Amino acid sequence: MQPIPVTVLTGYLGAGKTTLLNRILTEKHGKKYAVIVNEFGEIGIDNDLVVGADEEVFEMNNGCICCTVRGDLIRILGGLMKRKDKFDAILIETTGLADPAPVAQTFFVDDEVRQRAKLDAIVTVVDAKHLLQRLADSHEAEEQIAFADIILLNKTDLVSPDELAAVEKRIRSINAYAKLHHTQKCGIEIDKVLGRGAFDLDRILELEPEFLGEDHHHHDDDVQSYSFKTMRPLSHERFQKWMGDLVAVKGPDILRSKGILAFNDEPRRFVFQGVHMLLDGDLQLPWRADEPRESRLVFIGRNLNREELQAGFERCIA
């Protein structure tokens, strides 16, 4: 049996990982992928943002994929590889706060996984507009670049040519070997990120000699995740005003915001995404008749006050 190729999609919060994953899943490639999505926080949203593979998405949340849920990752991989319906490849989208090294480590330290799966590449998506700021305040952002085999320098339309050159120079100072692509909304041919056979264990061991030994991964403990949900319909106008006021004051501290919202008198779900002061959202699929119209909202950042966010969210109820 040939080992199943595994691609790890990583990158800091809001860089565009889910956008890339959806591009892969909606391409007409005739292949079947199993998808593992990990989130940071107690309410899962990313699973519902992944399109076209509902029955093959395996979700883990409330923990970093590189630490507390590694056992879950090994169990899910083991279960996938024993199924009768076979997959062409497995895609793992890590939380934006994950150090990819321990994720890659899983494919070498667990015997069953090592025999049945092969790490094909670590693909890192970086946000051209916010990367320099992330590198200044996040160890994980630097690790994600250092361990990458392929880098998508995304959101290039949001920066000037000089800013883009500075960002690329900084990336190359961390990782001179990875294949680098400039993208907007992660627009790239799928064969440039999948099936590359790009993971090089020797290079990783040179970068981190203890890679196959004990895991000494540390988290940025300043980052917190707050999640809110309600079954009561929201007012679109109130939500827009609240978010506008909120990012005007707390934007620098909000690393990531995202939600799936049910507005009154609106049959479609509103999918909301934010990175610092940049907010985006649109109406997407209709709510199904058999599913609860539950609004879920997540904030990830520093110096955030749960009670203030809760009160603001409740003021949006219609």
Rank of each mutant, 00 (worst) to 15 (best):
A128Q: 02
M231T: 11
L49M: 15
Q310N: 07
E39I: 06
K86W: 14
K129C: 03
S257F: 00
R269E: 12
S160N: 07
I254V: 15
Q115M: 08
V275G: 03
I36V: 14
L278C: 01
E59V: 15
I254S: 05
G259V: 09
S235K: 10
K118L: 11
D253Q: 13
D253T: 08
T26H: 04
V6L: 04
G44C: 03
R302S: 01
M1G: 12
M60I: 14
K129M: 13
N22V: 12
G251M: 06
A101E: 09
A248P: 05
D200M: 00
N62P: 01
V8R: 03
E39D: 14
L25F: 02
K28E: 15
D46Y: 08
S138T: 05
R70V: 12
F263L: 01
L135T: 08
F147K: 03
I151Y: 04
A176F: 10
D162Q: 13
D46C: 05
I300Y: 05
K129E: 14
L152S: 07
E210M: 10
F199D: 04
G11T: 06
R288F: 07
P5T: 12
V125W: 03
F40R: 06
V57E: 09
R170F: 00
H181N: 00
E112T: 13
K185S: 09
I188Q: 09
A311M: 10
E163Q: 15
H276N: 04
K129I: 03
L285N: 06
D265R: 15
P3S: 04
H139Y: 04
L13V: 07
E307R: 12
G244S: 12
L212K: 08
V298S: 08
L77W: 05
T10R: 02
L278W: 00
E291H: 02
F40P: 04
H182I: 00
G63N: 06
L255T: 02
G52Y: 07
P252M: 13
L132A: 12
Q133A: 12
S138E: 12
